[in-house]
Amino acid sequence: MIVFANGEYISGDEVKISPFDHGFLYGLGLFETFRIYGGHPFLLDDHLVRLNEGLRTLGIKAEYRRHEVLPILKGLLAANSLENAYVRMNVSAGVGEIGLQTALYEHPNLLVFMKPLGTSSGMVEKKLVLLNLKRNTPEGDIRLKSHHYLNNILAKRELGATSEVEGIFLTREGFLAEGIVSNLFWTDGETLFTPSVETGILNGITRQFVMKLAGKLQLEVQEGFYHQEALLEAEELFVTNSIQEVVPVSMFGKRTFPGKEGRVVKALSRLYGENRRKLWNRNSLQ
């Protein structure tokens, strides 16, 4: 695998990171994962907006724009002979003195790598289970897509290695939050429900795009604080993330759901597929 590391295209096993990088020492780093479809990095602008906002929060002096990132992605596609890919863009604070730093980090490390990913051949259904482990609260005002991933890792260990089931976090107060690697949605009639970001969830890029698509379908979107009983009363359930897209749910508890045959899931997936090779951001949706 050829990766991009601070201006160079090199083999992944040759990449070196200093033990004094504060991304390693103190978890001061952020990442974005997204897909490239036929050479097009879907919703790249939205991912970069979230990344740049997070960098400002962490005090990392860097800002990334489409015109800077696109040549890197094209170079990696060519170097790895790819057309469709999973991409991870990672920014860590960079080297600093040992100890907690209050000054801005002016020399961050940028690593970008990708791996092969085919185009979707059809929706794969999942089952949902509630996790015993509760969702931790964000380290700051909002949850960043940061290196602080222990809560998710412990949840995955609780769930096990299965790919057919997604675990759903509850908050300490018992409200529905999000999946281990996904955001949660359900429908009732012409209303689409999802937990509020005020529950401490990550405001996923695909989450935001799906809410935009819902408007095209004349669905009312409601964000709020909900208990698990809301899922048992729902008509359809699904989860989302930028790699798996819209993932229909076939079962929660003892209740079965339409899964990939659901009216809303099928409509959202159709619109998603129509736009994933052309949109740079959700606000350009026609």
Rank of each mutant, 00 (worst) to 15 (best):
A5D: 06
Y9A: 05
I10P: 01
G12E: 12
E14C: 10
E14A: 13
S18P: 07
S18E: 02
H22G: 10
Y26C: 08
F31D: 02
H40I: 10
L43Q: 07
D45G: 08
G59E: 12
Y64W: 15
Y64F: 15
R65L: 10
R65H: 13
E68I: 08
I72V: 15
I72S: 08
G75Q: 02
A79C: 06
N80W: 07
L82F: 14
E83Q: 12
E83A: 11
E83S: 13
R88E: 07
V95W: 03
G99L: 02
L111W: 03
K115W: 07
K115E: 15
G118P: 12
S121N: 13
S146L: 06
Y149D: 00
K156F: 00
E158S: 05
G167R: 00
G174A: 08
F175D: 05
S182K: 01
L184G: 04
T191I: 15
T194E: 06
P195C: 04
P195D: 04
P195Q: 05
I205E: 12
R207Y: 08
R207F: 03
V210K: 07
K216T: 02
F225R: 11
Y226S: 04
E235Q: 14
I243G: 01
E245V: 02
F252C: 07
F252Q: 06
F252G: 06
K254T: 13
R255G: 05
F257G: 01
R263N: 11
R263K: 13
L268F: 11
L268K: 05
Y272V: 02
Y272N: 03
G273V: 03
K278V: 14
S284M: 10
L285K: 02
